[in-house]
């Protein structure tokens, strides 16, 4: 796959799933996935795993939280479900320009 083309597709700002991207690039989702992984490794893309989000106790000021209150690490129980947003998928981003 031409990685430059892939990057330019991502850059245009339109959100896509990997499956859709595979279709557009005329390849398999596996190919897209490994390429994304590679691009992240070499620092071209940035990966955000929404499921792994932790506020790291940053909610200490949050009176609305049942509160790990900054003491324990991990998602603040009042704001986020116990396992974080486990099923929110993964985002890959590339800076335009």
């Amino acid at each position: 796959m031409d990685m430059q083309v892939l990057l330019s597709k991502i850059k245009n700002g339109e959100a896509r799933s990997t499956a859709m991207l595979a279709e557009e690039m005329n390849t398999t989702p596996e190919d897209v996935t490994r390429t994304l992984e590679y691009l992240e490794r070499i620092g071209v893309l940035r990966k955000t795993e929404l499921g792994k989000f932790e506020c790291g106790g940053s909610c200490s000021s949050c009176s609305g939280c049942s509160g790990s209150s900054g003491k324990e690490k991990g998602p603040c129980k009042g704001c986020i479900p116990e396992q974080g947003f486990e099923h929110m998928g993964v985002l890959w981003e590339v800076q335009n320009g």
């Binding site: 991502i10 700002g13 996935t33 479900p81 998928g89 320009g97």
Partner: peptide, 20 residues
Amino acid sequence: EDRYGIIMELPPYHKPKWGA
């Protein structure tokens, strides 16, 4: 120029864990 392009990997569907 600070704007980002995004791809999202959609997670598979899950059966909710009711207890948790």
